[in-house]
Computed example of a mutant assay.
Amino acid sequence: MKLLALLTPLLLIALTGCSSTKVVTDYNPRADFSRYERYTISDTSGADKVISPFIIENVKESLQRQLKAGLYTLVDTQSNADFLVRYYIAEAAETIDKSPRLGLGFGSFGGNFGISTSVGVPLGKDKINRNIQIIIDLLNPVDKKLTWRGSLVIELDDRDPKVNANTIERAVTAIWSEFPPA
């Protein structure tokens, strides 16, 4: 029973480390989001230089679909807009070792004393995941101050652009579902 009480916190920490990323939002509590009806895309939108133009276009199109579904109207000039939409895609590469490992352990246990030794031998190669962070900002068109921000880190597929398009669509939908703040 004592062993279970000791292992439970370690198991919870391990499971927490495996959880997927969540949408992160922040906003200006003085902003009146109920007045937001018309928007334009900020000319400062873009991405890190290493991000594929196809990824950028997928984010832009997904965002515009979300705005249209939310009944927001695209206007041609900032002077006619209630808010500016700025998106940015940043590289968030992370090396993750997903290769299986073979573990060999030796140990002894006697009385109240125990010793253990373990060696892990990798059976594969490390894999570098292509992760990106999608950031969506809403700005005041007059002073260009930030009023709302949502972001999410996602993992891209190295082989299938269709999978990436679907992943980006789900990510932008998840970010936009957090607007307006409650």
Rank of each mutant, 00 (worst) to 15 (best):
L6R: 01
D32A: 07
I136N: 01
K98F: 15
Q78N: 13
I132A: 04
E91N: 10
P181F: 00
S116F: 12
S52L: 05
N166M: 08
L102E: 11
I136R: 00
R170M: 11
N129A: 14
G107H: 10
L156Y: 03
S19F: 14
A31R: 02
A92Y: 07
A90L: 09
G111A: 06
F54G: 07
I55D: 02
I41P: 05
P122V: 09
D97K: 15
S20Q: 15
A47Q: 10
R65M: 10
V50I: 12
I13A: 13
R35V: 04
T95F: 08
S118P: 10
S20T: 14
K144H: 14
E91I: 04
D143H: 01
I136K: 00
D160H: 05
N112V: 10
L139H: 02
G103A: 13
R130M: 10
S99K: 12
V121G: 08
I168K: 01
R38K: 11
S20I: 14
V59L: 02
K2W: 04
R86I: 01
K98H: 14
D32Q: 06
L138C: 04
I56W: 11
L152R: 11
P161R: 05
D76R: 10
L63D: 00
P181E: 02
K98Q: 15
P9N: 00
D26R: 14
E94P: 04
I134T: 06
T8C: 03
A182G: 13
L10G: 01
F54K: 01
N131Y: 06
T8V: 04
N112W: 14
I89C: 07
N129Y: 13
R38T: 10
L63C: 02
W148L: 05
N58R: 09
L156Q: 08
T25V: 07
K22A: 14
G105A: 15
G124A: 15
T147W: 11
A182R: 15
I136G: 01
D126N: 14
A31G: 06
E57C: 08
P122E: 09
T117P: 12
A5S: 07
S99I: 11
A165I: 06
I136P: 00
P181K: 00
I154C: 05
L104K: 11
I132Y: 05
L15N: 13
L10E: 01
E91S: 13
L146K: 14
D32R: 12
K145D: 06
P141T: 09
Y27H: 11
R65T: 09
F109G: 13
V119P: 09
I135R: 08
D158E: 11
N129F: 14
I51H: 09
R30N: 11
K98G: 15
Q66L: 05
S62G: 07
L11E: 01
V119R: 09
D158Q: 11
P29E: 03
L104H: 10
V24D: 10
A14R: 02
